[in-house]
């Protein structure tokens, strides 16, 4: 035991080894150009559209938080997988990462978000929790938010003939408040993310 210990000390105390350890030169770390980095702010104003959060495939990686008077996305680096979807999906160009924005601008690509609201009529009891809780409904019709009576047709959905009927699916922001508030699991929001190409958009420059 003691002999091996001595051997080790001798072996690693050699000047040659120490010199190599301290002065050896390797090439500096460079992020490859094709690599997507952590998203960074571009300085544009966040409108709290939350597309980034909804597109993000990694749980807990991005969150839109209060920043001064406005909002700002915050990246949690331990969770972020640097896929860049948040950068691509943001309608306002709030984030950048590597060459994503340049590429998108050059090639005229973007990501399009939409949501499908699926209601299982067998499970739905028409309690209206989803309609009342829905933040878009609350905005569109304060009365709806205050107790489920719709006074106009601007709401996403409302109770009709004992079931939920979707009127404006296009207005859905995918927050899933309705899903959470449904006691029977009768309502499901599906997120549909499509890539498409079109002539260069100004906002993305």
């Amino acid at each position: 035991m003691s002999s091996s210990l001595v051997w080790y000390i001798r072996e690693f105390a050699r000047a040659e080894w120490i010199k190599k350890f301290l002065f050896a030169k390797t090439a500096p770390l460079v992020t490859p150009t094709h690599f997507r980095g952590f998203p960074e702010p571009t300085g544009k104003t966040c409108t709290h559209a939350l597309f980034c959060m909804m597109a993000c495939p990694a749980p807990g990686a991005i969150e839109v938080v209060h920043a001064g008077d406005g909002w700002m996305p915050k990246i949690h680096k331990g969770h972020c997988i640097r896929c860049g979807l948040c950068v691509e999906v943001c309608p306002n160009g709030v984030l950048k990462s590597g060459r994503i924005r340049e590429t998108m601008g050059r090639e005229g690509t973007s990501l399009l978000f939409s949501f499908r609201i699926a209601i299982d009529k067998d499970l739905c009891t028409g309690c209206g929790n989803c309609c009342t809780a829905c933040p878009v409904n609350k905005q569109a019709d304060a009365q709806m938010g205050a107790g489920g009576h719709s006074s106009n047709d601007d709401v996403i959905m409302r109770v009709q003939e004992g079931d939920i009927v979707v009127i404006h699916e296009d207005k859905c922001t995918g927050c899933k408040t309705c899903e959470v508030s449904c006691p029977n699991g009768a309502i499901r929001i599906a997120r549909i993310l499509e890539g498409y190409q079109q002539p260069v958009q100004e906002g993305l420059q």
Partner: peptide, 13 residues
């Protein structure tokens, strides 16, 4: 069914 959406949990107060 509508107790929570009309009067309690989900209704804006």
């Amino acid at each position: 069914p509508r107790h929570m959406s009309r009067y309690t949990t989900y209704a804006t107060g």
